[in-house]
Design a protein around this nucleic acid. Structure first.
Length: 644
RNA sequence: GCCGGGUUAGCUCAGCUGGCUAGAGCAGCUGAUUUGUAAUCAGCAGGUCAUCGGUUCGAGUCCGAUACCCGGCUCCA
């Protein structure tokens, strides 16, 4: 008896039945066998020591593979649990998966972990790794497993929840043992604990059992694990990089905005530099909306509670709305969390004909949402923000072209801001939904077709749509690879129904329009937060609040500096002239620290020859003696926004 | 909302186990310096140690509450 294994290079090699992954790896080469942590047979990962079940595709997994990293981190989580159970008698453990860049494990302990605990646990983990304990796979019956984990309530709950139809007979529950430690686990694992090259615990936090607020609050320990100490260090450097980009830190350093305690959590004030950035973004938004055929409307920040009753917000969204205020004749008013009802009322302000459609209404609308106290996070999650919102009303026939236009628009918008990588989610009808089925079907089909022809990679998120309609969400990757959800294009079947929107068709019948919500940036404030992090505060010149700083070498050059400034301002540039008594080096340093795109230095030679010294952000050398007219042209070109 | 950590000058941070008038750098102000590409020198000023309450002979330091911030969880129709 023998089996045929197809290697990644396409060759097919015969092996005896019952051969293990390790034996196959050894047959290929001793180096590979040493690096191997698991094997993948027909897409299924298996421990190295397990016999390979049968013929099929075969690959050796090492720590260089994503699968290998996942196994490394999963095994690290086991060692973490082992260390905690060792050090804290009476503690019990819940779940501990591998996550991006690391792993975590949830525990129930008497006292929450302190930073010192973390050090203790990490030391114990290193001892376990030092001892190089083999991970041994085992499988037992459900009853047997319940017995083994008699002291561990969460494990028992997991076992009890296992769907018997999903496990093959005789392998009811798989376990992994190393030394005295045993955990419930599907595997696979590293051959032994000694195969963890670099591990570090990073933080602790609270977490609910099964993510349910009503259940036990557990202590979560996060860690990270890498194929080498060097990889770990690089990861830590990357973390530091990300910290340096933190928009809250840069917002303060570049004097863009602040969150004064007096205002209340999640409420920002924009300082002049941030205000200029906002103005640039808002102007751009309005130009783009105009280009794509949107009209501008305005709606108030307050409206009668009845309106929110009709729209359904008080039914579905009240938790996130500020409490009502009683005004004239006990009339209750609410602060708006969304712009849609206002725009709907504009649609309803007169009878509409099919000839009027599509109607595209847009507004940079300020909204207020009551975010729970623990979730506010700088500009990325605040309680007051501005949506670059639009609502489009159209006929069924127009839906395809409207959706195409909306998608083109958001992609152009994101590209102009400096994002290059996009991914989309197409979220479809959830289990509980409202609206006619035919509308759901038609809209989902249309959204899919629009995405297909856009060339944007996307995945279908089955059942992830809102109850009122399917949607496309657009994600971007930032400069350091993080994924942000920004734009959204959503169909809404409930508002036209609730507000009884209609138009008269060519056949003189009354029809309900399709309604498309679309936010390009989402929240402008959040968008600016993301931009700050993406560009690390060094904005593209067209966005930068200050585009050029002029540094006179000595006071006698201020006159010429003013002349240069006037020329640049005449070309629409935002310019600062540094008239302080600081040294040239200091003035340049200040401009660079503030990440201004260009610095101009003017001294005696320049006044004489009508030239300037030019230094661009990010370049550590300067060009002297650039003719003034040429410099002005170059800077004006630099500061040009992308073509509309 | 929940768990944990934090809050000392405008900013970044020292301040040991409770013990004289709470320190530094940067920023600010004043003066000198007039400088050619990432920090000129000197002086001055600046803090109810988040707030309120408690323990103590004595609290920045210990305890409690509140506010706000941070990391997660939950939430984000």
């Amino acid at each position: 008896m023998s089996i045929d294994l197809e290697y990644p290079d396409g060759s097919v090699v015969q092996h005896p039945d019952g051969v293990t992954g390790r034996e196959v790896a050894e047959s290929i080469g001793p180096g590979l066998a040493r690096a191997a942590v698991a094997v993948k047979v027909d897409g299924e990962l298996r421990d190295l020591e397990r016999p390979i079940g049968g013929s099929g595709s075969f690959a050796v997994i090492t720590l260089a593979d994503d699968d290998g990293l996942h196994i490394l981190r999963h095994s690290s989580a086991h060692v973490l649990a082992q260390a905690v159970l060792d050090l804290y008698p009476g503690s019990t453990f819940a779940i501990g998966p591998a996550i991006e860049d690391g792993f975590y494990y949830d525990f129930k302990v008497d006292e929450p972990f302190t930073p010192e605990d973390l050090e203790r646990i990490e030391s114990r983990m290193k001892e376990i790794i030092e001892e190089d304990q083999p991970f041994v796979r085992d499988s037992v019956s459900v009853d047997n497993a319940l017995e083994i984990f008699s002291d561990h309530q969460f494990k028992r709950e997991i076992i009890a929840d296992v769907d018997p139809s999903e496990v093959s007979p005789g392998e009811d529950v798989t376990l992994y043992r190393n030394d005295g430690f045993v955990d419930l686990c599907r595997g696979p694992h590293l051959p032994s604990t000694g195969r963890i090259p670099a591990v570090k615990l990073t933080k602790t936090s609270g977490a609910y059992w099964r993510g349910d607020q009503a259940r036990d609050q557990l202590q979560r320990v996060y860690g990270t694990a890498w194929p080498s100490q060097k990889d770990l260090e690089e990861y830590l450097v990357r973390q530091e990089e990300a910290e340096k980009r933190d928009h809250r830190k840069l917002g303060n350093e570049l004097d863009l905005f602040s969150f004064p305690e007096e205002l209340g959590p999640g409420l920002a004030v924009w300082h002049p530099k941030g205000g200029m950035l906002r103005k640039v973004i808002e102007d751009r938004s309005r130009q783009m909306h105009e280009k794509y055929g949107f009209e501008f409307v305005f709606s108030p920040h307050l409206a009668k509670a009845d309106l929110w009753e009709t729209s359904g917000h008080l039914g579905y969204y009240a938790e996130n709305m500020y409490p009502g205020m009683e005004l004239d004749n006990d009339q209750e008013y609410r602060v708006k969390p969304m712009n849609c009802p206002g725009h709907v009322l504009i649609y309803k302000s007169r009878a509409r004909s099919y000839r009027d459609l599509p109607i595209r209404l847009s507004e940079l609308g300020g909204v207020y949402r009551y975010e729970k106290s623990g979730v506010v996070h700088g500009l990325l999650r605040s309680r007051g923000f501005t949506q670059d919102d639009s609502h489009t009303f159209c006929t069924e026939d127009q839906l395809d072209s409207e959706l195409r236009m909306h998608l083109d628009f958001v992609v152009a918008w994101l590209r102009d801001s400096g994002f290059e990588e996009f991914e989309a989610d197409l979220s479809t009808q959830p289990a509980k939904s409202v609206g006619e089925q035919s509308r759901w079907d038609f809209s989902e089909k249309t959204l899919g077709a629009v995405l297909d022809s856009s060339g944007i990679p996307y995945k279908v998120a089955e059942g992830e749509g809102a109850f009122y309609g399917p949607k496309i969400d657009l994600h971007v990757r930032d400069a350091i690879g993080r994924r942000w959800q920004l734009s959204t294009i959503q169909l809404d079947f409930t508002l036209p129904e609730r507000f009884e929107l209609e138009y008269t068709s060519a056949d003189n019948t009354s029809e309900q329009p399709y309604m498309i919500h679309c936010a390009k940036a989402g929240s402008l404030e959040r968008y600016m937060g993301v931009l700050i992090e993406h560009h690390a505060g060094a904005f593209p010149a067209w966005m930068a609040p200050v585009q050029v700083t002029i540094v006179p070498v000595a006071d006698r050059h201020i006159g010429y500096g003013s002349e240069v400034r006037a020329l640049l301002e005449g070309r629409g540039l935002r310019v600062e002239l540094d008239e302080s008594g600081d040294t040239v080096g200091d003035k340049i340093r200040k401009a660079i620290t503030q990440k201004h795109p260009a610095v101009i230095v003017v001294g005696d030679n320049d006044v004489e020859a009508r030239t300037v010294g030019l230094r661009m952000y990010g370049e550590d050398r300067d060009t002297r003696g650039v003719p003034l007219t040429e410099a002005v042209d170059r800077l004006a070109e630099m500061a040009e926004a992308p073509p509309l």
